[in-house]
Protein backbone atom coordinates (compact mmCIF):
# COMPACT_ATOMS: atom_id res chain seq x y z
CA UNK A 1 0.00 0.00 0.00
CA UNK A 2 1.16 3.49 -0.82
CA UNK A 3 -0.41 6.40 1.03
CA UNK A 4 0.78 9.85 -0.01
CA UNK A 5 -1.63 12.06 1.89
CA UNK A 6 0.70 12.96 4.76
CA UNK A 7 0.27 16.66 3.97
CA UNK A 8 -3.41 16.50 4.88
CA UNK A 9 -2.75 14.77 8.19
CA UNK A 10 0.05 17.23 8.97
CA UNK A 11 -2.12 20.26 8.31
CA UNK A 12 -5.04 18.96 10.34
CA UNK A 13 -2.68 17.81 13.10
CA UNK A 14 -1.29 21.33 13.40
CA UNK A 15 -4.79 22.73 13.45
CA UNK A 16 -5.98 20.30 16.12
CA UNK A 17 -2.91 21.08 18.24
CA UNK A 18 -3.49 24.83 18.15
CA UNK A 19 -7.22 24.37 18.69
CA UNK A 20 -6.73 22.29 21.83
CA UNK A 21 -4.18 24.82 23.15
CA UNK A 22 -6.87 27.51 22.84
CA UNK A 23 -9.11 25.66 25.26
CA UNK A 24 -6.55 25.40 28.08
CA UNK A 25 -5.03 28.88 28.60
CA UNK A 26 -4.03 28.31 32.22
CA UNK A 27 -2.72 24.72 32.19
CA UNK A 28 0.93 23.82 32.80
CA UNK A 29 3.10 23.90 29.65
CA UNK A 30 3.83 20.16 29.76
CA UNK A 31 0.15 19.34 30.00
CA UNK A 32 -0.62 21.64 27.09
CA UNK A 33 2.15 20.10 24.99
CA UNK A 34 0.97 16.58 25.69
CA UNK A 35 -2.62 17.52 24.92
CA UNK A 36 -1.47 19.16 21.69
CA UNK A 37 0.50 16.08 20.66
CA UNK A 38 -2.38 13.74 21.43
CA UNK A 39 -4.94 15.90 19.62
CA UNK A 40 -2.68 16.23 16.58
CA UNK A 41 -2.06 12.49 16.46
CA UNK A 42 -5.75 11.69 16.74
CA UNK A 43 -6.63 14.14 13.97
CA UNK A 44 -3.91 12.83 11.66
CA UNK A 45 -4.72 9.20 12.43
CA UNK A 46 -8.41 9.66 11.72
CA UNK A 47 -7.66 11.42 8.45
CA UNK A 48 -5.40 8.71 7.00
CA UNK A 49 -7.50 5.91 8.49
CA UNK A 50 -10.27 7.34 6.35
CA UNK A 51 -8.21 6.53 3.25
CA UNK A 52 -7.47 3.06 4.69
CA UNK A 53 -11.15 2.46 5.39
CA UNK A 54 -12.12 3.53 1.88
CA UNK A 55 -9.56 1.07 0.62
CA UNK A 56 -10.70 -1.80 2.75
CA UNK A 57 -14.47 -1.45 2.57
CA UNK A 58 -15.02 0.28 -0.72
CA UNK A 59 -11.98 -0.80 -2.73
CA UNK A 60 -10.91 2.80 -3.41
CA UNK A 61 -7.27 3.17 -4.40
CA UNK A 62 -5.60 4.50 -1.26
CA UNK A 63 -2.89 6.41 -3.12
CA UNK A 64 -5.40 8.50 -5.04
CA UNK A 65 -7.89 8.92 -2.20
CA UNK A 66 -5.24 10.01 0.30
CA UNK A 67 -3.87 12.52 -2.21
CA UNK A 68 -7.33 13.95 -2.87
CA UNK A 69 -8.05 14.06 0.86
CA UNK A 70 -5.15 16.52 1.14
CA UNK A 71 -7.17 19.11 -0.74
CA UNK A 72 -10.16 18.55 1.48
CA UNK A 73 -7.95 18.80 4.57
CA UNK A 74 -6.52 22.11 3.37
CA UNK A 75 -10.02 23.40 2.64
CA UNK A 76 -11.18 22.40 6.12
CA UNK A 77 -8.08 24.02 7.57
CA UNK A 78 -8.67 27.31 5.73
CA UNK A 79 -12.33 27.30 6.60
CA UNK A 80 -11.65 26.99 10.33
CA UNK A 81 -8.61 29.26 10.46
CA UNK A 82 -10.47 32.02 8.63
CA UNK A 83 -13.65 31.46 10.60
CA UNK A 84 -14.34 29.70 13.84
CA UNK A 85 -10.76 29.50 15.13
CA UNK A 86 -9.51 32.81 13.82
CA UNK A 87 -7.65 35.11 16.17
CA UNK A 88 -9.33 38.51 15.69
CA UNK A 89 -5.90 40.13 16.09
CA UNK A 90 -4.51 38.38 12.98
CA UNK A 91 -5.42 40.87 10.31
CA UNK A 92 -3.55 40.19 7.08
CA UNK A 93 -2.76 36.58 7.69
CA UNK A 94 -5.64 34.70 9.29
CA UNK A 95 -4.27 32.57 12.13
CA UNK A 96 -5.41 30.77 15.21
CA UNK A 97 -4.58 32.46 18.51
CA UNK A 98 -0.98 32.10 19.64
CA UNK A 99 -0.42 29.10 21.90
CA UNK A 100 1.67 31.25 24.24
CA UNK A 101 5.47 31.43 24.52
CA UNK A 102 5.48 29.29 27.66
CA UNK A 103 3.94 26.40 25.73
CA UNK A 104 6.48 26.45 22.90
CA UNK A 105 8.78 23.46 22.54
CA UNK A 106 12.00 25.46 22.69
CA UNK A 107 15.45 24.46 21.50
CA UNK A 108 17.81 21.70 22.45
CA UNK A 109 20.27 23.30 24.91
CA UNK A 110 23.45 24.52 23.26
CA UNK A 111 21.99 24.50 19.76
CA UNK A 112 19.53 26.40 17.58
CA UNK A 113 17.64 23.18 16.88
CA UNK A 114 14.15 22.79 18.34
CA UNK A 115 13.01 19.63 20.08
CA UNK A 116 11.13 18.48 17.00
CA UNK A 117 14.34 16.74 15.91
CA UNK A 118 14.11 14.47 18.94
CA UNK A 119 10.45 13.81 18.19
CA UNK A 120 11.37 12.76 14.67
CA UNK A 121 14.25 10.53 15.67
CA UNK A 122 12.21 8.82 18.36
CA UNK A 123 9.33 8.31 15.91
CA UNK A 124 11.68 6.72 13.37
CA UNK A 125 13.23 4.37 15.92
CA UNK A 126 9.82 3.39 17.28
CA UNK A 127 8.55 2.79 13.74
CA UNK A 128 11.54 0.60 13.01
CA UNK A 129 11.01 -1.45 16.14
CA UNK A 130 7.30 -1.77 15.50
CA UNK A 131 7.70 -2.83 11.88
CA UNK A 132 10.69 -5.15 12.14
CA UNK A 133 10.67 -6.46 15.68
CA UNK A 134 7.03 -7.03 16.67
CA UNK A 135 4.43 -9.53 15.53
CA UNK A 136 2.11 -6.65 14.71
CA UNK A 137 4.67 -5.15 12.34
CA UNK A 138 5.26 -8.56 10.81
CA UNK A 139 1.55 -8.89 10.11
CA UNK A 140 1.53 -5.40 8.58
CA UNK A 141 4.41 -6.31 6.30
CA UNK A 142 2.66 -9.49 5.14
CA UNK A 143 -0.67 -7.73 4.56
CA UNK A 144 1.06 -4.82 2.85
CA UNK A 145 3.16 -7.11 0.68
CA UNK A 146 0.48 -9.56 -0.47
CA UNK A 147 -3.13 -9.48 0.68
CA UNK A 148 -3.75 -13.00 -0.64
CA UNK A 149 -0.90 -14.47 1.37
CA UNK A 150 -2.06 -12.56 4.45
CA UNK A 151 -5.59 -13.90 4.16
CA UNK A 152 -4.28 -17.39 3.52
CA UNK A 153 -2.56 -17.41 6.91
CA UNK A 154 -5.61 -15.85 8.54
CA UNK A 155 -4.31 -12.35 9.28
CA UNK A 156 -7.00 -9.72 9.94
CA UNK A 157 -6.15 -7.66 6.86
CA UNK A 158 -8.77 -4.95 7.38
CA UNK A 159 -7.70 -4.23 10.94
CA UNK A 160 -4.03 -4.19 9.98
CA UNK A 161 -4.68 -1.75 7.13
CA UNK A 162 -6.67 0.59 9.35
CA UNK A 163 -4.19 0.55 12.19
CA UNK A 164 -1.21 1.01 9.88
CA UNK A 165 -2.90 3.96 8.21
CA UNK A 166 -3.84 5.35 11.61
CA UNK A 167 -0.25 5.14 12.87
CA UNK A 168 1.10 6.75 9.74
CA UNK A 169 -1.45 9.53 9.99
CA UNK A 170 -0.63 10.01 13.67
CA UNK A 171 3.04 10.51 12.78
CA UNK A 172 2.17 13.15 10.18
CA UNK A 173 -0.23 14.81 12.62
CA UNK A 174 2.52 14.95 15.22
CA UNK A 175 4.76 16.65 12.67
CA UNK A 176 2.06 19.29 12.29
CA UNK A 177 1.95 19.77 16.05
CA UNK A 178 5.73 20.20 16.18
CA UNK A 179 5.55 22.74 13.39
CA UNK A 180 3.00 24.72 15.38
CA UNK A 181 4.50 24.29 18.83
CA UNK A 182 8.14 24.83 17.87
CA UNK A 183 8.10 27.21 14.90
CA UNK A 184 4.96 29.25 14.27
CA UNK A 185 3.20 29.23 17.64
CA UNK A 186 -0.11 29.22 15.78
CA UNK A 187 -1.76 27.53 12.84
CA UNK A 188 -1.89 29.55 9.63
CA UNK A 189 -1.07 29.25 5.95
CA UNK A 190 2.65 28.92 6.80
CA UNK A 191 1.82 25.36 7.79
CA UNK A 192 0.82 24.46 4.24
CA UNK A 193 4.21 24.50 2.56
CA UNK A 194 4.39 20.91 1.34
CA UNK A 195 6.25 19.16 4.18
CA UNK A 196 3.92 16.23 3.66
CA UNK A 197 5.03 15.96 0.06
CA UNK A 198 8.68 16.28 1.03
CA UNK A 199 7.93 13.36 3.32
CA UNK A 200 7.04 11.22 0.28
CA UNK A 201 10.41 12.04 -1.23
CA UNK A 202 12.18 11.21 2.01
CA UNK A 203 10.38 7.90 2.44
CA UNK A 204 11.19 6.95 -1.13
CA UNK A 205 14.85 7.92 -0.92
CA UNK A 206 15.13 6.00 2.35
CA UNK A 207 13.68 3.00 0.55
CA UNK A 208 10.96 2.75 3.17
CA UNK A 209 13.40 1.97 5.95
CA UNK A 210 12.48 4.00 9.05
CA UNK A 211 16.09 4.21 10.27
CA UNK A 212 17.35 5.41 6.90
CA UNK A 213 14.77 8.17 7.08
CA UNK A 214 16.81 9.93 9.78
CA UNK A 215 19.89 10.72 7.66
CA UNK A 216 17.87 11.24 4.48
CA UNK A 217 15.48 13.65 6.17
CA UNK A 218 18.35 15.65 7.70
CA UNK A 219 20.06 15.74 4.32
CA UNK A 220 16.97 16.95 2.45
CA UNK A 221 16.09 19.38 5.22
CA UNK A 222 19.62 20.75 5.05
CA UNK A 223 19.40 21.20 1.31
CA UNK A 224 16.10 23.03 1.72
CA UNK A 225 17.47 25.24 4.50
CA UNK A 226 20.55 26.11 2.50
CA UNK A 227 18.43 27.89 -0.09
CA UNK A 228 18.64 31.23 1.70
CA UNK A 229 22.37 30.90 2.13
CA UNK A 230 22.92 30.12 -1.55
CA UNK A 231 20.92 33.20 -2.45
CA UNK A 232 22.83 35.52 -0.18
CA UNK A 233 26.37 34.22 -0.51
CA UNK A 234 26.52 32.98 -4.07
CA UNK A 235 23.74 34.96 -5.69
CA UNK A 236 21.99 31.85 -6.94
CA UNK A 237 18.20 31.78 -7.24
CA UNK A 238 16.48 29.87 -4.45
CA UNK A 239 15.11 27.40 -7.01
CA UNK A 240 18.64 25.97 -7.04
CA UNK A 241 17.70 23.72 -4.15
CA UNK A 242 14.71 22.41 -6.10
CA UNK A 243 17.00 21.61 -9.00
CA UNK A 244 19.33 19.79 -6.65
CA UNK A 245 16.47 17.83 -5.10
CA UNK A 246 15.18 16.97 -8.56
CA UNK A 247 18.61 15.71 -9.61
CA UNK A 248 18.83 13.46 -6.56
CA UNK A 249 15.37 12.14 -7.28
CA UNK A 250 16.14 11.41 -10.93
CA UNK A 251 19.38 9.68 -9.99
CA UNK A 252 17.56 7.43 -7.52
CA UNK A 253 14.72 6.68 -9.94
CA UNK A 254 17.16 5.84 -12.71
CA UNK A 255 19.17 3.53 -10.51
CA UNK A 256 15.92 1.86 -9.42
CA UNK A 257 15.07 1.12 -13.06
CA UNK A 258 18.55 0.10 -14.13
CA UNK A 259 19.36 -1.92 -11.01
CA UNK A 260 20.81 -5.23 -12.16
CA UNK A 261 20.21 -4.49 -15.83
CA UNK A 262 23.51 -2.99 -16.87
CA UNK A 263 25.78 -5.87 -17.78
CA UNK A 264 29.00 -4.06 -16.87
CA UNK A 265 27.66 -3.31 -13.38
CA UNK A 266 26.72 -6.91 -12.61
CA UNK A 267 28.32 -8.48 -9.61
CA UNK A 268 30.94 -10.91 -10.79
CA UNK A 269 30.39 -14.49 -9.68
CA UNK A 270 32.70 -15.24 -6.78
Amino acid sequence: MVVIGGEGALVLGGLAASAIAMTMPSAAPLVVQIAMAVAAMIAGAAWIALAGGLRHWRGVNETISSLLLVYIAIAVFNHLVEGLLRDPASLNKPSTPNIGDANMLGTIPGTDIHWGLAYGIIACVLAYILIYRTTFGFGMRVAGGNVKAARMVGLPVGRLVLVACGLAGASAGLAGMVEVAAVHGKANASLIVGYGYTGILVAFLARHNPLAIIPVAIQLGGIGASGGLLQRRLGLPDATVLVLQGLIFIAILTSEVLYGRLPWLKRRPA
Partner: peptide, 13 residues
Amino acid sequence: LRNACVAKMSVAE
Protein backbone atom coordinates in the same frame (compact mmCIF):
# COMPACT_ATOMS: atom_id res chain seq x y z
CA LEU B 1 4.73 -16.82 -5.05
CA ARG B 2 1.61 -14.88 -5.95
CA ASN B 3 -0.79 -16.57 -3.56
CA ALA B 4 1.16 -17.58 -0.50
CA CYS B 5 4.32 -15.48 -0.24
CA VAL B 6 5.48 -11.90 0.01
CA ALA B 7 8.17 -11.69 -2.66
CA LYS B 8 10.12 -8.90 -0.95
CA MET B 9 10.31 -10.60 2.44
CA SER B 10 13.07 -13.07 3.22
CA VAL B 11 12.83 -16.84 2.91
CA ALA B 12 13.03 -17.14 6.68
CA GLU B 13 10.16 -14.70 7.17
